[in-house]
Simulated scan of single mutants.
Amino acid sequence: MGCLCSLLLPGFLFLISVLHDVVDGQPLVPAMFIFGDSVVDVGNNNHLLTLVKSNFPPYGRDFVNHNPTGRFCNGKLASDFTAENLGFASYQPAYLSGEATGKNLLIGANFASAGSGYYEATAKLFNAISLSQQVEYYKEYQNKVVGIGGKVNTTSIISDAIYLVSAGSSDFVQNYYVNPLVNKVYTIDQFSNILMQSYANFIQNLYALGARRIGVTTLPPLGCLPAAITLFGLGDNECVAKLNVDAVSFNNKLNVTSQNLQTKMPGLKLVVFDIYQFLYNLVMNPADNGFAEKRRGCCGTGLLETSILCNAKSISTCANASQYVFWDGFHPSEAANRILADDLLSSGISLIF
């Protein structure tokens, strides 16, 4: 298996560089909006009464100024690299942060919240911001930007912006699989169908508010997450096959639902980013992409820790996170996020042009 970064063709990189010259250093799109869970949360949960936070060391140790911002990573998220790849000079601010004011809002905003999901009750379990509430914040955002840049400018920002959605993992790993109030009531297939309906409603709501370029990520290989192997692997150190089968089934439904939505909504570009295969390849062939460790995350023992369990006193935290596919028990390292973002850019070209 060759290096995944080869998916981003040299010719495409050249095209991007030419376009940057043409638009005189301006971003390829006017704004970016991010919705979802901990994979893309850049600090909204810092402002909530919740245990699901990461605004403390060793989180952020490889970020700008070694600062823990609330990102569930040692450094940059895939969405941060995506913002850079699109030509943004700064990252879209967490909507609940003090940075989300004035002209900073003109490049978009991040509404994601760790612990959130397509299932409303998942967010309630962790006192996170549900997707429906994220949409309400987005409505509020639009009103603010009209006051800053005027209605015509706002309409252009809204329609030409790229929207990224990352959700679903918490619904399964942190809710369905461990919550008898859910898994004793619904089969995995029934639960996936409920999530699909929520997903469809969410996309329809964004579309009604002017969104036209939307990228949504699939579920990752849930059974390969270090914490999932620890919790559900029955002592085995390999990916949990059943969880991966569930993720593939969900992803198939996501593709079908997305195709149906795009057919029904004029002018909508809806791209499904297959992060399942990307991460599965990294885990199966880590050395091909410069990684030495796939089973354990860098933080602590790397077998379970995330959020408050990954802290400055976590024993055995690795010295070099770039050797690890995962930073903690659930989240990719900055090194993995960098490769993922390049893959997203190449597969999401239709959203840009």
Rank of each mutant, 00 (worst) to 15 (best):
259 Q>L: 05
328 D>M: 00
216 V>G: 03
279 L>N: 05
4 L>W: 04
41 D>E: 12
107 I>C: 04
138 Y>F: 15
341 A>S: 15
31 A>Y: 06
224 C>P: 04
323 Q>R: 14
64 V>E: 15
255 N>L: 11
288 D>T: 10
286 P>T: 03
241 A>I: 09
48 L>T: 01
69 T>W: 14
228 A>G: 00
343 D>R: 06
213 R>E: 05
72 F>R: 03
189 D>I: 03
260 N>W: 00
104 N>D: 10
160 D>Y: 08
291 F>A: 06
272 V>N: 03
163 Y>G: 00
194 I>Q: 14
75 G>M: 09
320 N>Y: 11
235 G>F: 04
152 V>F: 02
318 C>Y: 08
160 D>N: 15
166 S>I: 13
113 S>V: 01
15 L>Q: 14
30 P>A: 12
59 Y>A: 08
295 R>K: 10
15 L>P: 00
250 F>Q: 12
330 F>Y: 14
288 D>I: 01
93 P>F: 11
257 T>F: 01
78 A>M: 12
123 A>Q: 06
17 S>V: 04
104 N>Q: 14
24 D>S: 09
85 N>K: 08
240 V>I: 06
129 I>Q: 09
97 S>N: 06
194 I>T: 07
41 D>W: 05
297 G>E: 06
216 V>I: 14
168 G>Q: 09
58 P>H: 12
242 K>E: 13
348 G>C: 03
238 E>C: 01
139 K>C: 02
218 T>Y: 10
165 V>F: 13
56 F>L: 11
111 F>P: 06
58 P>M: 05
119 Y>W: 09
234 L>Y: 12
73 C>S: 15
249 S>F: 13
226 P>E: 07
196 M>H: 05
195 L>W: 09
329 G>C: 05
191 F>S: 07
189 D>A: 13
